[in-house]
Design a protein around this nucleic acid. Structure first.
Lengths: 156, 156
DNA sequence: TATTGTTATACTCTATAACTATA
DNA sequence: TATAGTTATAGAGTATAACAATA
């Protein structure tokens, strides 16, 4: 019966998430971008950065696990700031391709360097073995949790 | 240089958090409570459940990492639903003590049983060794990350 | 007719400011 | 005068519905 330990794990995960998502670290990371970017805007940039190329509005929404209109709005704002540009998808003229600009790339690079710097500093005292073991087990946990989620996503 | 692996870890953590916080698992867990509880209301109940006794509004807010008025509102709603009751703190009559009722306790029990059941099912195929190792490393990671956060919380 | 995206609208989550009561 | 909490208000995050353009 792992319930007690699992509950503890979950509670600490939630607390850490709250601290990271609205705390001083987040503010420091946003400040590093040089602009007052909203969280969803940062997520749009992060998705494009990870994708390594232009993506459709719908693809970005799926990756962010939000609905389309939410992405539309933030892409608009990012466009006004010069951080992304959009072009009609030549393969399907209903769709738009969103592409990160050098300004946007610099912003997300700076944001990530603060957050990842924080994470790596925390892992600084860890042995190579423990670090590898952590990444391995965490990766496996995520895979198993995601698979388990399917139970609820498709109830039949 | 662990940055690449750290980035991967962080991205997957974020994706999993989104899935758990607004996905089908969350809806199933809320449905199990038998009431249409908002997420902050569930968090209030979870804090009281973990505390094992009455807590002040301010204490609940600190635990939830939110401001006081947010808690006040949801305590009101929970009171109307009969899930908590409040009494003036006899030691300091400015403060109110919030106490979970049997109805509220049942609701949070049912919510947690769904979420923790999901988590435990995912860990079902794991060896005892791997499970222990995961909890150990994750616990250590949280401790180190929290300590590292202090850098940003107190910039001097 | 189905799909991609946008516009309009509304609801939830959370913070800040102004205030009341007690310390 | 400082602290605990509440009330009022506003802003950010997100969803749903109605619509336009293209497939």
């Amino acid at each position: 019966m792992t319930t007690a330990a699992s509950g503890e794990l979950l509670a600490r995960l939630g607390a850490l998430g709250a601290a990271v998502n609205r705390g001083a670290l987040y503010e420091a990371a946003v400040a590093a971008t040089g602009a007052a970017l909203e969280r969803p805007a940062i997520n749009v940039l992060a998705v494009l950065n990870a994708a390594g190329g232009p993506r459709r509005v719908g693809e970005i929404a799926a990756q962010m696990q939000v609905e389309g209109p939410h992405v539309t709005r933030h892409v608009h704002r990012l466009e006004q700031r010069g951080m992304v540009r959009t072009v009609v998808d030549p393969d399907d003229r209903r769709a738009r391709l969103v592409e990160i600009t050098p300004v946007g790339q610099q912003a997300i690079d700076r944001y990530l360097s603060v957050v990842l710097g924080w994470l790596d500093s925390a892992l600084d005292g860890w042995s190579e073995h423990d670090r590898t073991e952590l990444f391995h087990l965490a990766g496996r946990l995520f895979d198993d949790l995601t698979a388990q989620l399917a139970r609820y996503e498709q109830p039949d």
